[in-house]
Simulated scan of single mutants.
Amino acid sequence: MTTEARRIQLQDNLNRTREAIAAACAEAGRDPESVRLVVVTKNFPAADAAALTALGQTDLGENRDQEAAPKAADLAARGLDPVWHFVGQLQRNKARSVASYADWVHSVDRVPLVDALAKAAAAHGRTVNALVQVSLDGDTSRGGATIADLGAVAERIAASPGLALKGVMAVAPLGWKPAEAFALLAECSATVRSVDSGATEVSAGMSGDFTAAIAAGATMVRLGRNVLGEREPMA
């Protein structure tokens, strides 16, 4: 249950975050409507996700299926239908569950995962919007296709019923200047658009670097603590 004080806090944080995004867009000469805010609700209760949805925050993100699936079911039982974004690393054995509720999967990074996700989406009678996660520094242990493999993953998504190729996603590697990382991601976006000209989404930017991401052309920013505050991981 969300208290009135928590609702007010979330509304205030949401307003400040949207203002910060608008300011970054103004600095970059962009329309604020061109950037979608995805509030990442991981480690926060379903009551917070429900409150955000009621406050008009359409897009919510999660990065672990074991937390996301029951949270999505909880909101559905309340009659709420946010747009769910799965933003964490995804294993093939979780594809069927994720495809049942996620409208967007930002972390598609290898052909076998494409195939599993497409099969799962088809089984649920759904179309899942897919972004190719790119490992900008080539260290795939943290998720992401190498730049060399980017085109092949994009082509497989584009050819898969049940999936819609929408663009790219990346996390700025540790030690990199965000502007350099997101400039490279912009080049990767061009590669994916050569596969499908409509795949124009660029998911980039978190709490510490979303301004740089917007300056480099991000169309989605993934923010959590800006809106929800700090919280210890849920048990």
Rank of each mutant, 00 (worst) to 15 (best):
Q66C: 03
A130T: 05
A118V: 03
W176C: 09
A120W: 00
V83R: 15
L185W: 10
T140A: 02
C188V: 09
D103Y: 12
A183F: 06
T140P: 01
G138K: 09
I147R: 13
A159N: 07
A102F: 10
V132C: 03
N93I: 13
R78F: 08
A154G: 11
R96D: 14
G79E: 11
K119N: 05
D149G: 14
F182M: 04
P173A: 08
R193Y: 03
L75N: 09
V114K: 02
A122V: 15
G138W: 10
G162L: 10
V105D: 02
L113P: 02
V114L: 09
R96M: 06
T146V: 04
A99M: 06
Q66I: 06
L165K: 05
S160K: 04
L184N: 00
V128K: 04
V132M: 03
V114Q: 03
A120D: 02
E187L: 14
A120Q: 01
V132Y: 01
L117M: 10
A154F: 08
E155I: 06
H85Q: 13
D65R: 11
L163A: 10
G162Y: 06
A68R: 07
A118E: 01
D65K: 05
T140C: 04
A102V: 07
A122M: 11
A116T: 07
P161Q: 07
G151Q: 15
A118G: 15
L80D: 08
P173C: 11
H124F: 10
A102G: 05
P82W: 09
V153N: 05
G79H: 08
L131Q: 00
E187A: 14
E155S: 13
P82K: 10
K119T: 15
N129T: 13
G175P: 10
G143P: 05
A69N: 03
L80V: 12
V134W: 09
P173S: 09
E187F: 06
D137F: 05
H106F: 07
L150G: 00
K119S: 11
G175M: 15
P173Q: 12
R156C: 02
D115I: 07
P70H: 06
H124G: 01
D81E: 13
A170P: 06
D81C: 07
T140K: 04
L174D: 11
F86H: 03
G125L: 11
L163S: 02
W84C: 01
K71T: 07
V111R: 13
A190I: 08
A69K: 11
L150D: 02
R193W: 04
A183Q: 12
V98N: 01
R142L: 08
D149F: 13
R193S: 03
R96T: 09
A179C: 08
G143I: 02
A68H: 08
A152V: 06
A120C: 00
